[in-house]
Structure formats: C-alpha cells, structure tokens
Design a protein around this nucleic acid. Structure first.
Lengths: 138, 138
DNA sequence: TGTCAAGTTTAGAATATTTCTAAAATATTC
DNA sequence: GAATATTTTAGAAATATTCTAAACTTGACA
C-alpha cells in the first residue's frame, strides 16, 4: 500500500464530508491500494469491483469518482472523446496516451520543460497545463 | 477568404478522392471562408449550416468532418469528455481552453517551448504533442 | 445525352457514456 | 433505538456519435 492506506482513505473522506460507506471504501481500496498509479474509466472500475466481489452500481461508481475528484484524491484526464479516465496520480504530471490501446502512462512534470507560456486570454486565469503525448505502436 | 479558396477546396477534395458535392462544398465554405481559425463541434456546424440555408443532415456533418480530418483539412481536438472539437488550423499549435465557456483559442507552436520530451513507452512512436492550457474566467 | 456503376446522403435506429430521478437502504446523531 | 440526513440504486433520460440500408447524386463512357 502507498501512503494512502485504509485509515488514510477514511480520513480523507471525512475531510471531504463523505461518509465512509462500504462502496466508497471498496472503490478506494481498488483504486489506491496498489503500488502503481492507475488510469481507469468508470466502466473498467465497475467491472473490477464486480470481479473483486464488491457489489456496487455503475451510478455509484460515477458518483464516487466525481466525489473523489472533488476531494482531491483523483484527477480526471481528457484524452478520448466520449470516455473519461480517472488518474490516481494527483500531483503535477503529464501523459503518454497510446491511441491504439487507449492506454495512459504518466510523465513526471520535471521530465517536460515548458518554457514561456503566453499569457491567457483577457479575463481568464490559467487553471492548469495538460500535455498529452499521443503515441502509436510501431 | 484565406488561401483555401473555393477552387482550392475542390482541389483538396479531389486529392482526397472525395467528390465535391453540394454538402461538402457548403460545409467547406462555412469552415474555411473566414479569415479566422475556427474551433467548432459537429452540432454547432450543423446549426450554422441550417442558418445559412444549407440543407445537410447531422450524419453528413459527422462524415464530412471526419473525411476532412483524414484529408488534412481539419484536425480533431480533444479537450472535453463527450464532445469533439474540429480545428481549421492544421499547423503545429496548441490551445487555451476556457473550461467555463467551452471556448478554444490557438497558441502558436513557437510561443510554447517544450524542451526535453522523455522517450515514449517501448514499442511506440510519438504521433503528436498536444498542450491544453485550461483557463477559467476571473 | 442517357445509362450505369460507384460514391454520397439521409432518416432513423443503434450504441456508448454519462447524468438524472425518486424510492429504498444505510449511516449518523441524539 | 428513533429520527434525520446521506447514500445507493435501478432504471429512465440525456447526450454525442456511429451505423444501416434505402434513395439520391455524381462521374465515366458509350
């Protein structure tokens, strides 16, 4: 387990005013208990929950993913029209996206050097910078 | 009109083995006849066509947008889950995306300096690098 | 120019993802 | 343990996109 252990999840849910229900805890364990960072769609997580014997509806998977995003436990990644990916890595970083396989891989922020961003359109402020490096199989 | 004038569109369609039909020419004119670069969704273009008195089905708008992409006349931009934008600027560049308004603005490639891309995952090759600077209204 | 084959458009159905709704279940508080 | 608030859920609805197959248009050529 990473630093987001079982009790840490409860605590983070509490901080976000979310009750630690069976479903949230179960999905949290699936998402955060591995060593690896995960990039997963709602449907994939729903399937994984089913396979793990966790009974949870697709609606709840969607609700939970969004609540986890708001709580800062997850981050939504937009690379594919018509499908959202959720990323357990909430730190500053970017992505490789394998267009053929629909697979995301992290790129640590420090490995990409963005010099000289132009100033944003009048009346707006920069929220964040997303870099997606699209790759194809040889 | 830009350099992609009326006759130029016909020519480009021919090059792509696409017959210059009423629908394709009409949509081409809507997309390319202004001075400005355009960022538009299928639905927006369909509406615009209707307003311009061009009778064309939504299915054809989708077909045409994809064919124009394959022909290198357009480029698809993914910034919003569940909606595709099509960009008349096919050159190398990036985008501001106003999350609140759903509005895209071009950033010329030379205004962003990406130094030191890490090498792509084994067995893959870089297709392109998309940078999206998400902005919010003050 | 008329005919034919190939390509194109279309309405409507189908699909896929996501959100909504309101009723039942669960958690928290006292 | 009862009362209240939150959460989950199935199924319906919304949204964007793709598919299908029939009707239409185009281009080639006699």
């Amino acid at each position: 387990m990473t630093d987001r252990s079982y009790s840490s999840i409860i605590e983070q849910l509490r901080n976000a005013n979310l009750r630690p229900t069976r479903q949230r805890m179960g999905l949290g364990r699936l998402l955060f208990s591995g060593d690896q960072q995960r990039h997963i769609t709602a449907d994939q997580l729903h399937l994984e929950a089913e396979n793990a014997g966790l009974s949870v509806s697709l609606a709840t998977v969607y609700n939970t993913l969004h609540q986890f995003c708001e709580a800062g436990l997850l981050r939504e990644v937009v690379v594919d029209p018509g499908r959202s990916y959720f990323d357990t890595n909430t730190g500053s970083h970017h992505h490789f996206f394998n267009v053929e396989r629909g697979e995301l891989t992290d790129i640590p922020a420090e490995l990409i050097n963005v010099a000289s961003l132009p100033s944003p359109p009048l009346g707006t402020q920069i929220d964040r910078v997303d870099i997606v490096v699209r790759v194809r199989n040889d």
